[in-house]
Design a protein around this nucleic acid. Structure first.
Lengths: 261, 261
DNA sequence: GCGGTTAATTGATCTGCGTCATGGTGATGA
DNA sequence: TCATCACCATGACGCAGATCAATTAACCGC
């Protein structure tokens, strides 16, 4: 009983549901860049002219899915503001595995945050989708911050927020079973990248993570994550496939995160 | 063969070697506060007058060992600059354990970093020693940052640095065996709180952490940490006792962190 | 549509370490 | 000096999950 073109509510086949916003690497034009900048949280409230001044110091670049924006160990010479797509920040462990330390979406700042600090990147940045980002060198960024202290405060808030979130991660990694950690991770991902799915209280996670990525997020292995997710899928709590996941029954997933059920 | 008063090089008794800088809770006078402020990294370079202006907005407070400066869930109404002592920041897990997310020393900033962000503290702050800290409310702090953008940049660097360090923690928690993680944790602690010990390449960690604290740092349990440290002690790699540790043979500890030996 | 490639699934095995329990030792205060 | 308490050490046991290996399924380019 094949599904018709319209009834894509809940596919019986486990095909990817993720939408690709832009298919190929490209260069954004000025108009798009201005639109991106105005959407960046810590530039909100600035005038068109102020934005234009910032825009003039930025370079627009793009990468294909799977490319590295920079690698762990590279000289940290640039700051990035993500315009489009998804990027994962990951640190290699001694054993070869990569731990995902952050996921960034449009409007997020990443790269050489601490100009005085490390001269090299402590983590690698991988394009999970086709990605467009604006690049600026730290000195130019500092000039902007000095000239516009309100922006500096917003950036500080943003980084502080990110610090709090990363501390949560630390907590997560040493809490409960793999099942609980995977459930918690999925819920947190839903908060950041979830788009509500039709009908129920579920949500599709708009970020193409492999089992290995989820293992890096939960501090586990791809196999264990796979096992847990298969079980949750059988129980109708989530749905997932190759590099995509969605939440079907949020409430039960919360229970799973708490260790009940 | 009892040791003489002078030969305290390597005590056979496992007594605490940590020095207490100030024994009792107290109130710092203006002169001391100014000295503290001038030592704070992100206030360096400011004039006496500028420092005095900042000082006027700060309140000096102190706590006894074991007290909480604030608890997880408290309204996050204050920022702190540590003047003297050691403070641990810890997040409770669902299972009751406390995960140590950061250790702060004199000059470090902590508390309500993200004023726009969370309205309550995500972590508790415990005094590991008798502690003296300067308190300021976030709005006053913001005014300072707006008035002095260079300071804002330094604070941003500081927070970014801390973010990088916390990401390291995330990495650590999912890397290798408990033995490796404990070894790595001790090495990192030595970088921040170590004072070189006489003679060898060792270092005493000037921070009174219990086995449970170290468990919270390494994502393990007090018993496992105890086992590992006993073994390292027998092998002459470290020395430790009740709420103190010191590194004896740094090189072999590095090996232990890597998993060799 | 058809291989080729990469990711996911699932099973079997084995071990690190979490858990529970007991006894020891240094610190603290009357 | 002694009693009390908090912290530390160590043993025994069992299981969650890491590891290795083999199969299946989804995606991609042609």
């Amino acid at each position: 009983m094949p599904t018709t073109a319209n009834s894509v509510q809940r596919p019986d086949r486990r095909r990817s549901l993720l939408s690709e916003s832009c298919g190929v690497p490209h260069a954004c034009d000025t108009a798009l860049r201005m639109r991106v900048l105005s959407r960046v949280p810590f530039f909100s409230g600035l005038s068109q002219e102020q934005l234009a001044r910032i825009d003039r110091r930025m370079v627009s670049l793009s990468w294909a899915q799977g490319d590295a924006l920079y690698l762990c160990g590279d000289a940290s010479t640039h700051l990035f503001v993500l315009a489009e797509g998804r990027v994962k920040l990951a640190q290699p462990t001694l054993s070869g595995q990569e731990i995902v330390v952050d996921l960034v979406g449009p409007g997020d700042l990443f790269g050489a945050l601490s100009s005085l600090g490390q001269p090299v990147h402590a983590e690698s940045a991988w394009a999970l989708t086709t990605v467009c980002a604006l690049r600026i060198d730290p000195n130019a960024f500092r000039e902007i911050l000095v000239a516009q202290p309100e922006v500096a405060l917003k950036v500080l808030d943003d980084v502080a927020q990110r610090l709090a979130s990363t501390r949560e991660d630390v907590n997560q990694h040493s809490a409960g079973t793999v099942r609980q950690r995977v459930a918690t991770a999925l819920l947190r991902l839903a908060d950041k990248f979830g788009v509500p799915s039709d009908g129920d209280d579920g949500a599709l996670l708009q970020v193409p993570l492999s089992r290995a990525d989820l293992a890096g997020i939960t501090g586990s292995t791809a196999e264990s994550v796979s096992r847990v997710m298969s079980q949750l899928r059988r129980d109708g709590v989530i749905d997932s496939g190759r590099r995509w996941s969605s939440i079907v029954d949020r409430e039960r997933l919360v229970d799973a995160a708490k260790g009940d059920f």
